[in-house]
Design a protein around this nucleic acid. Structure first.
Length: 272
DNA sequence: ATGGTTGTCTTACAA
């Protein structure tokens, strides 16, 4: 059965407040390297929106023609070597924002836009490297400024999806080996408290709400055959306002198993 | 599991 048909069947029992949408987040770790995988993903899943992180491509070198040839539009905020975000969509993206007000930051980590009446806030939250490090302090500086910005977005846009690479594993259910990761970067109590603060602004962890008891991972270290051994963590998330009605979700783990993969797999949610 | 592996105008740094 084609996936598109499956989406409609899965969602038909829900009340529809906006167009049904399949929305994906994927840290591609270099769009230049991962472009073939992205084009395969678009053809296979026919998503309405895909938020990319770590594109690592400056805007003047973004592969616009390739994405448009696949039947999509794209907006982006990139830089050389590091970071970079892009949002791919079937329909028009308006009211683009690339910078957090009050945060003077050259790192390209935010791309907010409106698609079909839904505010799509695509983020590449800083990794933090190690608890207590300078980069860890930057992670929280960024997050505090972002949280203030997000409050305003939520007031303006009743239908909002906040998605991306959060670099936070919210609970031990999101970690293959919680004892190994206890207190480590992505799993520290301070990071988890910040994740809960974002949720408490009026958002739902859509993937977890649909799979409340199932360990699910979105990132596996390149080293030590971590993927083959299923040593993963869930750090890529789609949070949404209550109005959004998620009806199915999953991780396209298959894309992590391919040749020359990103270390993240795509995470998708269907909204009724 | 702290050993390693990716990606980047690389030989260091970020993840």
């Amino acid at each position: 059965m084609p996936i598109r048909t499956g989406l409609l069947l899965e969602c038909q029992h829900r009340a529809i407040h906006h167009l049904p949408m399949r929305i994906t987040t994927w840290n591609v770790n270099s769009l230049n390297v991962r472009l073939p995988h992205l084009l395969e993903y678009l053809a296979e899943f026919e998503p309405d929106v895909v938020a990319l992180q770590e594109t690592k491509v400056p805007d003047e070198k973004f592969p616009v023609a390739e994405v448009e040839a696949a039947g999509y539009r794209v907006i982006f905020s990139g830089q050389k070597t590091y970071n970079g975000v892009a949002t791919i969509s079937r329909d028009e993206a308006t009211d683009m924002v690339t910078d957090i007000p009050e945060l003077d930051d050259p790192q390209r980590r935010l791309l907010a836009t409106t698609i079909n009446g839904v505010r799509i806030v695509n983020v590449y939250i800083p990794n933090g490297q190690e608890v207590g490090s300078e980069k860890y302090a930057y992670k929280f500086h960024w997050l505090h400024a972002f949280k203030d910005y997000l409050k305003g977005e939520l007031e303006r846009y009743p239908q909002l999806v906040l998605l991306g690479d959060y670099n936070i594993a919210p609970t031990d259910l999101d970690v293959h080996d919680p004892m190994r990761w206890q207190g480590k970067i992505t799993c520290s109590e301070q990071e988890r408290a910040m994740f809960r603060e974002l949720v408490s602004l009026g958002l739902t962890d859509t993937v977890r709400s649909l799979h409340p008891d199932e360990p699910m991972f979105s990132w596996w270290d390149y080293r030590m055959n971590a993927f083959r051994r299923r040593w993963g963590i869930r750090i890529d998330h789609l949070l949404a306002t209550e109005s959004m009605r998620p009806c199915a979700a999953g991780v396209a783990t298959d894309y992590r198993a391919r040749e020359r993969p990103s270390d993240h797999a795509p995470v998708w949610v269907n909204f009724a």
